[in-house]
């Protein structure tokens, strides 16, 4: 994402959100809209205040993030593993590649019914689903990154007498790092999408999470809560991206990448 690094900040970008807020305010004040359908901004703020104050937001956030990151870690590890295997071994690619590329085409959410039936309505099936969603982009990007390691680089490694393990940690992984990081970033985005999706589609009784909060808001027709929940979900998505990019820059700098 191209965050503006320019010295002079361009404030024109603030105009659309400001207009939107103004219209929202005006709509409520002037009675253009039905306030149960479009609650005024102050009502959303009140909901936000309540949820922040009572700690409910943090509990829901922590539960969702724990699922998200747990599933992401599992899926990313498996994805890097398979990606490296497919990248270094022609045999593995021939044996596993076609199946992998076919299964990838099954739309993510189509796994939910089977997973939830096999693993039950609990966090286990949600985490596995999140792992699956992170797995594909990471595996694919890792595979492409590793495949991009040139023969010449392998030659050098052979000349230096690298062991298989050294080849992996000193050559393959560093060389493929930019692609793997891109894949991880995509995996993180998908994992968050899957977390919210799973919380919507697999509502378990008494569970907490941002998605569950929104579902409750909709069931109670509390539109302010739905809006607030949606903003929180989006905010987490943005924050995850930010944190990831910071880590990525640090990691690539540590690797000695010129950019």
């Amino acid at each position: 994402m191209t965050t503006s690094h320019s010295a002079r900040r361009d404030y024109r970008g603030l105009v659309p959100p400001a207009l939107l807020l103004l219209a929202w305010f005006a709509a409520g004040r002037l009675g253009w809209t039905n306030p149960t359908l479009i609650p005024p901004p102050e009502q959303v703020l009140a909901v936000a205040w309540h949820y922040l104050g009572s700690g409910e937001l943090f509990r829901a956030l922590a539960a969702s993030l724990a699922r998200d990151l747990g599933g992401f870690a599992l899926g990313a590890l498996a994805g890097i593993g398979l990606g490296v295997l497919l990248g270094v071994s022609r045999w593995a690619e021939r044996l596993l590649g076609p199946t992998f590329h076919t299964l990838k085409q099954i739309s993510l959410f189509a796994w939910i019914p089977l997973l939830s039936i096999w693993l039950g309505y609990n966090d286990g099936s949600r985490v596995v689903f999140i792992a699956v969603s992170a797995f594909y982009p990471v595996a694919l990007a890792t595979f492409e990154g590793v495949r991009g390691v040139t023969r010449a680089q392998f030659e050098v490694a052979r000349v230096h007498g690298f062991t298989a393990r050294q080849r992996l940690t000193r050559l393959i992984l560093p060389a493929a790092a930019p692609q793997i990081l891109t894949g991880l970033n995509l995996g993180l985005v998908y994992a968050w999408l899957a977390t919210i999706g799973a919380e919507f589609l697999l509502p378990a009784y008494g569970d907490i999470g941002l998605g569950d909060t929104v579902i409750r808001g909709r069931a109670a027709f509390n539109v302010a809560l739905v809006i607030f929940g949606m903003l929180a979900i989006g905010g987490v998505g943005v924050a995850l991206n930010r944190v990831f990019h910071r880590l990525e820059r640090r990691l690539l700098r540590w690797r000695g990448d010129p950019r």
Binding site: S116, I117, W118, G120, Y121, P203, Y205
Partner: peptide, 19 residues
Amino acid sequence: WFFFKGAGPAVNEALTNKQ
């Protein structure tokens, strides 16, 4: 006790899983 918002069909799934 376990309660199911998904009513009978959800109970059946849990029953199938021997839960």
